[in-house]
């Protein structure tokens, strides 16, 4: 059984306007996403900015109340659970954010930051918590002296380590990682990725790894889901997705990655335009519309669904993007 099960999840936001601030339009940030994450697995989620990947992550940790669909964690339906009912579940689902500088309270010491999860969950005595903080710092590769310092005294990579320590404090089962290394330098990025891999092995963690860089996502994930304009267009095991991409958007994303090897310079097919707005999205296949594909009109009015074309490899079949 999968740890997390997301079924046809929708996250719509009203776009208000006019003098009365009435909802005039709807922004369909996440529009019918179904994914699952098993224990110990990393599911990668990749897409351009504005595709809804962060919104999906936040809806999964229930920072948002989903508009429609179903969220199941360990078989328990948490789609509509109250904040109170969610409290014990929050122990098991944690989040790591992109910018550690902005997600750590600058007025708290590292000790305060790391003790807070225990206080919220009413765990341990003062002495115990003190000891746990020491253990956490050790686990993420920081010196125990770090506990009495403030976030600004650390470099970006160290701050992200603090963010990770906070996320693993309550021994969660699932961590939603939203662009955890995008703000970091290359040499530090690899340290943090290694740390995340080690912790996963050690603690049996599952990750939902959200990022826009396909090479990082592929490196970290067992399976990868490609998201475009609020929908998953392709989902497959990492290697399979890389060697045998089927959707035109996945191919375009793969093609756009700069390859760190000058002998492999190539002429690439450039994607034109930007991700369209999720307010009034184009009808039919959104990507076919962007590509002005001749067969796009055929997709209008069709119900585009993910289909399993080979074991574990799912593709949103449409006449314009999949051969």
């Amino acid at each position: 059984m999968s740890l997390l099960n997301v079924e046809n999840l929708k996250m719509h936001f009203p776009v208000r306007g006019g003098i009365l601030m009435r909802a005039l339009k709807t922004c369909k940030a996440v529009d019918g996403v179904s994914i699952s994450v098993s224990q110990g697995e990393t599911l990668g989620l990749v897409g351009e900015s504005g595709c809804g990947k962060t919104t999906l992550g936040k809806a999964i940790v229930r920072l948002y109340q989903p508009t429609d669909g179903k969220l199941q964690f360990e078989g328990q339906d948490i789609t509509h659970s109250s904040q109170r009912a969610l409290r014990p579940i929050r122990r098991d689902i944690q989040m790591i954010f992109q910018d550690p500088a902005e997600s750590l309270n600058p007025r708290l010491t590292v000790r305060d930051i790391l003790e807070e999860p225990f206080l919220v969950q009413k765990q341990g005595t003062t002495a115990e918590r003190r000891q746990w903080v020491g253990e956490l710092l050790d686990k993420v590769g920081l010196a125990s002296t770090a506990a009495d310092r403030f976030p600004f005294e650390f470099s970006g990579g160290q701050r992200q380590r603090i963010g990770i320590a906070r996320a693993i404090a309550l021994k969660p089962k699932l961590i939603v990682c939203d662009e955890p290394v995008s703000a970091l330098d290359v040499s530090v990025q690899s340290q943090v990725l290694n740390l995340m891999l080690d912790l996963q092995r050690e603690m049996g963690l599952s990750y939902l790894f959200i990022a826009h860089g396909l090479s990082v996502v592929k490196h970290m994930s067992d399976r990868v889901a490609v998201m475009y304009l609020g929908k998953i267009v392709e989902l497959a095991p990492s290697e399979e997705l890389y060697h045998n991409p089927r959707h035109a958007y996945t191919k375009a994303l793969l093609d756009a990655i700069p390859v760190p090897d000058p002998s492999k310079r190539r002429a690439r097919r450039l994607l034109s335009g930007d991700v369209p707005s999720p307010i009034d999205p184009p009808k039919g296949c959104a990507f076919g519309h962007r590509m002005k594909h001749p067969k796009w009109e055929q997709s209008v009015g069709m119900e585009l669904k993910l289909e399993e074309i080979s074991p574990g490899h799912w593709v949103q079949k449409c006449p314009c993007c999949v051969d």
Partner: peptide, 23 residues
């Protein structure tokens, strides 16, 4: 620097060669 970047053809979930410490 060259060794620390994840390459698209590398084996998923293998450890990267990181440069220890920071600038």
């Amino acid at each position: 620097l060259l060794q620390s970047i994840p390459k698209i053809e590398s084996v998923p979930k293998s450890r990267l060669k990181a440069i220890p410490g920071s600038v």
